[in-house]
Each structure stands twice: as structure tokens, then as C-alpha cells.
Design a binder for these strands. Structure first.
Lengths: 211, 211
DNA sequence: GACAAAGTTGACCATTTGATCAAGATTAAA
DNA sequence: TTTAATCTTGATCAAATGGTCAACTTTGTC
């Protein structure tokens, strides 16, 4: 018997437990990767027995894919909002801010995603080659238009996008390294994100000014 | 009996086999991480039996640490070469080129490193908090001097360093994503690295011009 | 060529881990 | 309160995996 009835409705308990499990799974998978995480760990973190957890997600794969899919949606949203009608400074600025906010608020999602890409993205291939690719092409076109209109310096849109992704996600994915370099006194993390935004704005805006 | 004699000298066979094992280990660990890689896989990739491999590296940990340490040295070298006496454009330019070259030629080393940081860098903590931290502080000082001398725009050195690390390493760590977005026809990869260098130079140099 | 050291591996072991199952406990609708 | 569906878990299993060992082969030195 499936855990959700045919009509797809979920009981109160299902709702709560699925949520607890997915949260625990994100915690563990984002830190240790798929193979590095055990079902026992997730079950313990979710505060229930392993068989009970497997009552909600039948296999480790299914659990992992569910977590991954949910984080991926978060990841795509801000990029889709980039508006070709706006001007580059405010649009790219808003995008950078959104990406940094995501790295600050939900670093685990970013790490899970990074982990998956590092392993060769076996489960992400379809999304990357489909929806993401389409999105990238659309946004690249917008950037090219901005350039043609003399609103920003001529740079390859693709590499500009990579640069923004890289230097924002870095604050989530490499947080361990930054903590080691800067220490972890309270407040350090917030200051870091402020500094990141200031520096990215300075470099990118001056760097992309039309000339 | 240890695999290397007390005098630390290695036989011809030891030399060759260690090298083969380390290469195979880097291949596997960089793709699948520590937990995701099995000794059987590494032994097979190295073309020898598992017990024989364990004759050269007594445990999986020891093998992993050896690989990690070797890649780490590569990672640190170009950064150490950044010369405060030079001018920012040529020094940072050379550094960016070196980092991109490293990402192009040895992406596996970069991925192994990224993997380790993502997992919380349990084995790298000492290096990060010691040698790397010292290096970062030294180079930050150099950048601050450049700024004080009016040779470049005022930006937080730490975040500038992060930005350079992020946007160069990205070309190794997220290669899978880029391949999915751009396809994998022959030549694509080389063109990508050219475009990366061009774009990074444009954005960073214009972005960091003194004003 | 003799022989000690170095190198090699099939067979095996103990532990970990994803998954199953039967049996019991809880929940909610009537 | 009854009862069927839902929820929960201890016990258990089979496969995978890190590591050991004894026996055998190869290498290099005299």
C-alpha cells in the first residue's frame, strides 16, 4: 500500500513526518552527499525509526530525488525573474542580491546542488539540458540586447552568468573554508555577506559599465 | 612490515605502483567523494588487486589523505606567487590565468578539493587555518597597499580573493553543468576556457580600475 | 644460481547498510 | 465503542565493503 492514497491527499501525520524527514535528509545529504549519508543517520535526525521513514519514502533514491527536486526549484526561481525590460544594473543587481540571500538563508540547498554537480549530476541531466538550458538561452539573449543597446560593456553573457553563479554560490559551498580563514565569532557571517554584496556590486558594476 | 624501508627510499616498483594508485584514487575520489568511492573501484582502475593496493597504502584514509595533500600543494602554489612588488593588473592577471589553467589541466584536483570543503573539510582544517590563512593575510596586505597607492579601486581584498577563486574554480567544479548547457562537441572545452579568461579579464580589470 | 626481500593475490572475515516483514499501536470515521 | 485504515518498530536479511592472512611469485644482490 502506498503512503499516499490514490487521491493524492495526505493526512496530518503524513504532512508532518514527510516534512521532518525531508529536512533531516537535506541536512545530511548536503553535508555528506548521497553515498556518505546513511538512512540510519537521517532517521535519527528526523527522530523516528528507519522502517518508519521507509514507510514514507520507499528507497534512499526516492528520498534523495525528492529533496533534490525541491531545492532545484528554489535555485531556478530568482534566475527566471531577471527581466529583459529593466536595465542591466538594477536587474543584475537584484539577481545578485537574491542569489546571495539564497546562499545566506539556505546554504544547504546550494551545497546539495553543488554535491550533485560534482558527482557528474546523474539525476540532474534532464533539468540541466532542458529547462535550465532554455532559461540560460533566454537570459543570454536579454543580455546581448542590453549590450547592443549600449547599456553595458560587451561581455559573453554565458560567462557573465557563470561568474555570477560562481561568486554567489561560493559563499554557501565554501563556507567552511571562509569560516576557517575568518573565524566564526558571532556576527562574522552577517558581515561576510554584507562585504560580499558590496564587493560584487563594485566590481561587476564598474566592470560592466558601458564605455 | 612497512612498504617503504626505514631510509625512506622507494624501489622502482614502489614508485610506479604508488603513482598508478594515486592517479586512480584521484580519478575516483574526485568524482565520487570519499564515501562514494570503494577500494575495489580504485584497485580495478589501478589495474591491481585490492590487497596489493593495501600493501602500498594501509587504509582508505591514508590513501585519501595522500591524494588530498598532493592536490593541495598544487592548489596553493600559484597563489603564493602573487608578487606585491608587481602591479595589480599583471599580478592578478597572471594569477587568474594560472588558476584557469589549473582548472583546465587538472579539474579533478579542484573537484577533490571542493568535495572535501563541502563535507566540512575535516582533514583540511589545519591547512586552512594555518598556511592558507597566513597566505591570505599576506596577500590581502599586498592588495591593500595597491589600493592605498591608488593602483586599483578600493575593494575588500578578502572578497576579491573569494571572487577570483570562485569564478576560476567554477570551470572545473561545475564543468558537468557547463557541458550540459553548452554541449560537448570537440573544441567546446577549449573555447570555453578562452571565453572565461577574456570575460574575467574584462570584468575584473575594468571593475578594479582606479577611479 | 641461491636466497632474502619485495611484491602479489585468492579466500576470507567483520561490519555496515539499504531494505523487508510481521506484529503491534494509534488514529479517525461511523 | 467498534473497526478499518494508518502508523510504528524490533528483528532480520542479503549485499557491499574495508581490511586481513597465508601462501605464492618475482626481483635484485651476492
Amino acid at each position: 500500500m502506498a503512503v499516499t492514497s490514490e487521491n493524492g491527499r495526505r493526512t496530518r501525520i503524513q504532512q508532518e513526518n514527510r516534512e521532518r524527514i525531508l529536512k533531516a535528509a537535506l541536512d545530511m545529504f548536503s553535508r555528506s552527499g548521497y553515498r556518505g549519508t546513511t538512512l540510519d543517520q537521517i532517521a535519527a535526525a528526523a527522530g523516528m525509526s528507519k522502517p518508519n521513514m521507509l514507510y514514507y519514502f520507499r528507497t534512499k533514491q526516492e528520498l534523495y530525488q525528492t529533496v533534490l527536486q525541491e531545492t532545484l526549484d528554489d535555485w531556478l526561481t530568482p534566475f527566471a525573474k531577471l527581466d529583459p525590460q529593466g536595465d542591466p544594473a538594477s536587474e543584475l543587481g537584484a539577481y545578485i542580491s537574491a542569489k546571495l540571500a539564497h546562499a545566506r538563508i539556505n546554504p544547504k540547498a546550494s551545497r546539495l546542488f553543488a554535491n550533485e554537480i560534482l558527482q557528474g549530476a546523474p539525476l540532474l541531466e534532464d533539468t540541466l539540458k532542458g529547462p535550465l538550458k532554455d532559461l540560460v538561452e533566454t537570459k543570454s539573449k536579454a543580455i546581448r540586447t542590453w549590450i547592443a543597446d549600449g547599456k553595458m560593456a560587451p561581455v559573453d553573457p554565458l560567462h557573465l552568468i557563470y561568474m555570477i553563479w560562481a561568486s554567489t554560490q561560493h559563499y554557501a559551498d565554501f563556507e567552511t573554508q571562509m569560516d576557517a580563514l575568518e573565524g566564526t565569532e558571532p556576527g562574522t557571517r552577517d558581515k561576510r555577506f554584507e562585504g560580499a554584496e558590496r564587493t560584487l556590486f563594485t566590481v561587476l558594476f564598474n566592470g560592466l559599465k558601458p564605455r
